[in-house]
Design a binder for these strands. Sequence first.
DNA 1: TTAAGGTATCTTGTAATGCGAGGTAATTGA
DNA 2: TCAATTACCTCGCATTACAAGATACCTTAA
Lengths: 112, 112
Amino acid sequence: MSQTQMLKGIIDGCLLAIINEEECYGYEMATRLSHFGFSSISEGTIYPVLLRLQKEELVTSTRKKSTAGPKRKYYKLTQKGEEELAIFLRNWSEISRNVNAVITRKVGEVKR
Amino acid sequence: MSQTQMLKGIIDGCLLAIINEEECYGYEMATRLSHFGFSSISEGTIYPVLLRLQKEELVTSTRKKSTAGPKRKYYKLTQKGEEELAIFLRNWSEISRNVNAVITRKVGEVKR
DNA sequence: TTAAGGTATCTTGTAATGCGAGGTAATTGA
DNA sequence: TCAATTACCTCGCATTACAAGATACCTTAA
């Protein structure tokens, strides 16, 4: 039960949420995630996710000059990406509620 | 971002929590999980997990007669299983806090 | 006796996906 | 020039949820 496994399917949603907040590039997202408490999500994880998101047309990217270093690839949500983010938020809320119900031994109330 | 992916590594922990509450067998756990809101966690998912937990010596099992049907396999946590449950609870709490920080755009406070 | 249906477990193969390790390249400052 | 930092990408491994299918037990009723 490593955290690695528990992060599956969650990182996508978190990146969508971060991009939704403001245009952002990969290298910075790693930093952001660590500010939010995710200490060990590396670039080897993030870049493949971003490529996947783009392939699925949930985000678009634009290359822009960096102040120091190679060009950055800024990502922005598409309409479809916004919808996917909404789905993620619903799924997270549901799963989160259910897990908490299990560990507190209480049957969760159905949200309407 | 299917729920399937988001459940990875979580089901183990939930089963440990359920077993910890009271000795339980696989078929019943499926029912229990659905009472907690998990509508679609099937036996094809649960049984492999239970075998894995046993292999890792987190649980032990005892066969007991059923009132109707073949013998049931009742599971119980080992010491190691209790420790693993504790780790899961910590991991869940941490991840859960971090994700909520991301989606509410707030930097999570560090728990001490 | 036999058929049906609920109870109970297990196996196989597939599809995702996180991540370590390694590689490439641009820019700055010592 | 050289090192450090910034920034991106790829490959391969390990793990895991789940559908689909198989097997078997037990009770009830036709």
